[in-house]
Design a protein around this nucleic acid. Structure first.
Lengths: 237, 237
DNA sequence: GAAATTCAGATTGCATACAATTTGATCGCC
DNA sequence: GGCGATCAAATTGTATGCAATCTGAATTTC
């Protein structure tokens, strides 16, 4: 399993290193909501930031587009994705399909070393929730997503793990757009509940706990009222 | 739902047209096994074939790499993926997670128009199985995969549909490598069983039928003995 | 003769140049 | 003043050039 709090290196298939690096940087920026949905990503600007040519940036943007985090419009450029309510529903439906099964497998495979990492991660999440300030808030959002990715990692299926990574990231965009309570999405106690089920190696209970958790996250959304920038909605959606 | 027998246009997010076209052509070639696992895809050669520059080809290859159909090795080039036994197991595990849920949703949502398309497709599959010759065989393989994609399409979730597309394509590679009986993977009668369940709108039965079907496909595999080209294995894997 | 070495050809990785397209701003017109 | 046309700047799409790397074969060495 991978480190609990730190950056989550994307499982990379042997792609070239530099665009992978840019992809991860943008990925993190999107997941942590430093980049708002709809933000334009100009190739030359990103390139300057990382000191690479547009070629490399384009490769990164195309990867992100492929996993639905970025939308590329021909001759117009790349934008941070702006999921529609319908896409949002599909994202959560997909999570409901995949994540409980992941939890079941994780419950069967979890080791004591994994458990320690989960506990440490949970403590960190708790700490970040108490702390104030935008940075802490961002870190909390990231940590919350990473919890789900740790779960996927323990389940031991790289393909499902990749699917989950995509779904988690897109969920973050959905929550940014349609989340109501400022509460950073994941009630910490539910993460603890899931870990309890894992420690008991109770795969059915783990699956149920995840289902409840996803239900709660989605209950906090309001697909009708669009949250942040109503004007941009009219333009982009 | 999409046409039954014809090429399955990849749901494209608004990517550029030309690399998308190349991607689809290579995708079909791989799924229909005109391109064997391990085959090298030289950028300039592919470019000449489609009359485009390497830039466009590279974009296509990177997309295919992202969905696991092609492996890009740094400074060495792109190769048609050569799934290891372990990857193969993960591919089928992922299918077992996703496809029964797809079948359930399809059973709930199927329309009479869909049913007609399925029936036509089934008939076509039957016809192709009887016919002889490599082209008919290829068409049969393709049609068999398309059946599963039609199912995904009826389920009405574009994300799961994309995941399935990837899994079906990679399954085709796995079967090419580890398949034992020449039988082109999908027993036609099982496809008919699945359709029966769909027509009865019996989602549980549909899910079970799919599970059985996947079991049978995987039972025909032998991950120990590598099928086609033992020498290439030693080199590439 | 077998193994190691060298080197040329082929191929990829990346940067850049140029054409096509979009954007948004100025200007003219009603 | 509002509306539409015209044009320049910005940005993307694509091709291409060059350096770095790999490949495979001829050559040398033992």
């Amino acid at each position: 399993m991978k480190p609990a709090t730190d950056a989550f290196p994307v499982h990379h298939d042997g792609q070239d290193d530099r665009s992978q690096l840019i992809r991860e940087a943008l990925y993190n920026a999107i997941v942590e909501r430093r980049l708002a949905p709809g933000t334009k990503l100009v190739e030359t600007e990103v390139g300057k930031l990382f000191d690479v040519s547009r070629t490399v940036v384009r490769a990164a943007l195309q990867m992100l587009a492929f996993e639905g985090l970025v939308k590329i419009e021909r001759n117009r450029g790349a934008f941070v994705a702006y999921p529609t309510p319908d896409e949002a529903r599909q994202i959560f439906e997909s999570r409901r399909v995949i994540e409980p099964e992941i939890a079941e497998r994780a419950a069967e495979r979890i080791t004591s070393a994994d458990i320690k990492l989960f506990q440490a991660h949970l403590k960190e999440e708790e700490r970040l929730l108490v702390e104030r300030g935008p940075n802490a808030r961002r870190a909390a959002i990231k940590a919350s997503g990473d919890y789900h990715l740790m779960l996927a990692s323990v389940a031991g299926n790289l393909i499902l793990e990749r699917f989950m990574r995509e779904l988690i990231a897109r969920s973050s965009l959905v929550i940014a757009l349609y989340g109501q309570s400022g509460a950073s999405s994941c009630a910490r106690s539910e993460h603890a509940d899931i870990l309890d089920a894992l420690m008991a190696r109770d795969s059915k209970k783990a699956a149920d706990a995840i289902r409840h958790h996803i239900d709660h996250i989605e209950e906090d959304l309001d697909y009708k009222v669009v949250s942040n920038s109503p004007l941009r909605d009219a333009l982009r959606v």
